[in-house]
Design a protein around this nucleic acid. Structure first.
Length: 240
DNA sequence: GTCATTGGGAGATCTATGGT
DNA sequence: ACCATAGATCTCCCAATGAC
């Protein structure tokens, strides 16, 4: 039982380790791009993005347009640790989806929370292609001057989050708008370096997924032992 | 159980753009 | 130039959650 618990904790630490690794890799390679302490040429988001689009709300999308098992809708709650986690209960009808083509997501887009917690952001991969940008979200469509993975890490980094918090609108609730996004200015590393960063991140991600899978297994093992301990299947001797 | 805090929903209102 | 319309933004209100 103790062994199962320590295995579980070790796997947990490994997953956290990989998360920290990608963050420090970013800092190592590019420094703080907002302070631009590596003195790259400056660029505003206006120069790096083809498009910034805020999700539909108000009269465009009503609560009753939400259905189950329709086209997945991405709201800030569905952006967890830079990943998109769609939910079947948050989706819209195909007809509604077709009538609002401006909000369809494409591979390579970045989706982020428009209000509430700053810095929630995820990359749209092939898996999420065609999902729908929800009310509380906005999406960025990067152009050829910037790598999407690099941009994702710019936004989710600590300095990215604090930049957004400093510049967000609203007293009770932080809100972002198009202007705030387009005016963000960073030091832009050469595209080759950004692409190199993406390759490294993908490797780390693979390792992390492996660690995650191990964690799930060890948690399952721990829980089943716990269950058996409760039902009395394990005596004190065996449990120790 | 109650109160405070946070996040989401909604529409009123403002703004930009395109057509006449 | 003016008007219509779509799109963007602000802010109030409400619900859910968590702390005490």
């Amino acid at each position: 039982m103790d062994a199962a618990d320590s295995l579980r904790q070790k796997d947990q630490q490994l997953v956290e380790h990989y998360t920290a690794l990608s963050q420090s890799l970013f800092l190592e390679m590019f420094g703080d791009v907002f302070l631009n302490n590596k003195h790259y040429p400056k660029a505003t988001f206006k120069q790096l993005l083809d498009k910034v689009q805020i999700g539909p709300f108000g009269s465009q999308l009503h609560k009753h347009d939400y259905v189950e098992n329709g086209v997945p809708l991405i709201n800030p709650v569905h952006i967890v640790e830079s990943k998109v986690l769609p939910s079947n209960s948050f989706s819209i009808l195909k007809e509604k989806y077709d009538s609002l083509p401006n909000y369809h997501l494409k591979e390579g887009d970045l989706i982020m929370a428009r209000r509430g917690e700053m810095g929630r952001c995820a990359l749209i991969t092939r898996k999420e292609e065609g999902f729908f940008c929800g009310t509380g979200s906005l999406y960025l469509r990067p152009n050829n001057n910037v790598n999407s993975t690099f941009l994702l890490h710019v936004i989710t980094s600590d300095s990215g989050k604090s930049y957004l918090e400093r510049n967000a609108q609203g007293v009770t609730m932080m809100n972002l708008n198009k202007k705030i996004i387009l005016n963000i200015e960073i030091g832009l590393p050469p595209i080759e370096l950004q692409n190199q960063f993406e390759v490294s991140i993908n490797l780390i991600e693979q390792q992390k997924q492996q660690a995650q899978a191990n964690l799930e297994k060890s948690e399952a093992l721990f829980n089943s032992l716990l269950q058996r301990a409760f039902t009395g299947e394990l005596t004190a001797n065996k449990a120790a």
